[in-house]
C-alpha cells in the first residue's frame, strides 16, 4: 500500500514544492530558518481563523446593542414588529422558524432514517453506494433552486392535491384550518424537508454502518427477523448518532434562507394553521436588512441574526457531540 504512494511522492519531490517568491524567500532565510517561517505562517493562519470568528460574534454583538438595551429579553417574547413605531419583537419570526423546521423534521426524520436503514442494512453495497451518492447530491442543489421549484412546482401541486386531502381529513384540527393561498408554513416545511433529507440519510447511514456486525448476528441467531434485529438492536445501538444527524439537519433548516423566503409568505404572525403564511428569522433579515432606515431597526435585525446564530450554534454543538462519539463525518456531510 505504501509503495505506490512513496513512488508517487518521490516523483513529485523533484518538483519545487513552494510557490513563494524565491527572492523574498532567500531574503527571509537569511534571518529565519524555513521551519520557523512555516510554523509562523500556519500559526498565523490558524490565529486568523480564530480572529475572524471572534470578530464575527463581536460585530453582531456591538451592532445590535441598541436593540438589546431597549428591549432586553422582551425582544424574544413580544410579537409586534412595527418599524414605524420603533417596536421590535422577534416572537413571530422565532415561531415561524421553529414551526417550519419542526414540520421539516416530522417529514424528513422517518423518511431519512428509513432510507438510511435500507441503505445500510438491506441494499447490496454497490447499490447502496450509488443511491447514497444520488441522495448526497441533493445537498448540492442550491437553496435558490429549491425555492424556484417550491414556487413553481410544489406550491401548485400541494394546492391541487395535498391541500384538499388534508382539509378533508384533518380540517377539523386547528393545524389544517383556514384557507390555503400557496405561500405558507406547510410549503416551507416540505421544501425544508427535502433540503435536510440528504444530511439525515448520509450521516445516519454512516452511523448505522459503524454498528459492529456481531450485534446484528447475535439478534438474528436468537431468531429475530431482519426488521426486529435492525429496529430493536442496530438502531438503538446507533441512536446517539442518529439523533446527531437529526440535530445537524435541524441546524441547517433553522438557518435556511432563500428557499424559505420564497415560499413562506413573509407575514409576521402566529397562527396555529400550517396553511397560514408565516415568516422566519432568516427570511426577514434577507428581506429587510438592506432597507431598515434607522439604527434601532438595523440593530433589531442584527439581533435577530444573533438569535439565529445562537440557536444554530447550540443545535450544531449538540449534533457534533452526539455524532462524533459514534462515527466520523465525511467531508461532504459537514
Amino acid at each position: 500500500m505504501h509503495s505506490s504512494e512513496t513512488l508517487k511522492v518521490q516523483g513529485e519531490a523533484r518538483v519545487p514544492g513552494t510557490k513563494r517568491n524565491p527572492g523574498a524567500r532567500a531574503f527571509a532565510l537569511r534571518f529565519f530558518s524555513g521551519d520557523e517561517i512555516a510554523r509562523a505562517l500556519v500559526t498565523i493562519s490558524a490565529a486568523l481563523i480564530l480572529l475572524v470568528t471572534v470578530l464575527l460574534v463581536y460585530e453582531l454583538w456591538i451592532n445590535s446593542h441598541l436593540a438589546r438595551e431597549k428591549f432586553g429579553w422582551h425582544f424574544l417574547t413580544t410579537q409586534v414588529w412595527d418599524p414605524n413605531a420603533g417596536q421590535f419583537g422577534a416572537l413571530a419570526f422565532v415561531f415561524g422558524t421553529v414551526v417550519t423546521s419542526f414540520v421539516a423534521l416530522l417529514i424528513a426524520v422517518p423518511l431519512g432514517v428509513g432510507a438510511a436503514i435500507f441503505l445500510s442494512e438491506l441494499a447490496p453495497p454497490k447499490l447502496s453506494n450509488a443511491l447514497t451518492f444520488c441522495i448526497e447530491l441533493l445537498a448540492a442543489v442550491p437553496s435558490v433552486i429549491y425555492g424556484l421549484l417550491g414556487v413553481f412546482v410544489l406550491m401548485p401541486l400541494i394546492k391541487q392535491y395535498l391541500h384538499p386531502v388534508l382539509k378533508g381529513t384533518l380540517g377539523w384540527t386547528p393545524l389544517f384550518s383556514g384557507p390555503f393561498y400557496g405561500p405558507s408554513m406547510l410549503v416551507a416545511g416540505i421544501v425544508l424537508a427535502v433540503m435536510i433529507l440528504p444530511f439525515i440519510v448520509s450521516v445516519s447511514r454512516q452511523v448505522l454502518l459503524a454498528v459492529p456486525n456481531d450485534q446484528r448476528e447475535g439478534a438474528l441467531a436468537l431468531g429475530a427477523t431482519k426488521w426486529e434485529s435492525t429496529w430493536k438492536v442496530v438502531v438503538p445501538f446507533a441512536q446517539r448518532g442518529i439523533y446527531g444527524s437529526v440535530f445537524l439537519a435541524l441546524a441547517r433548516s433553522l438557518g435556511e434562507t432563500m428557499a424559505v423566503t420564497m415560499v413562506i409568505g413573509n407575514t409576521p404572525q402566529i397562527k396555529a394553521s400550517l396553511f397560514a403564511p408565516g415568516y422566519s428569522i432568516a427570511a426577514v433579515i434577507a428581506n429587510e436588512f438592506t432597507e431598515a432606515t434607522y439604527d434601532l431597526y438595523v440593530h433589531s435585525l442584527i439581533e435577530l441574526g444573533l438569535v439565529l446564530f445562537a440557536l444554530t450554534i447550540i443545535i450544531n454543538g449538540l449534533a457534533r457531540l452526539l455524532v462524533s462519539s459514534t462515527a466520523k463525518f465525511s467531508v461532504s456531510s459537514t
Binding site: L56, E59, L308
Partner: peptide, 10 residues
C-alpha cells in the same frame, strides 16, 4: 455552523 445570512450581515 453560522447561517449564511449571518455571514452576509457580517
Amino acid at each position: 455552523g453560522v447561517p449564511s445570512i449571518v455571514i452576509g450581515i457580517f
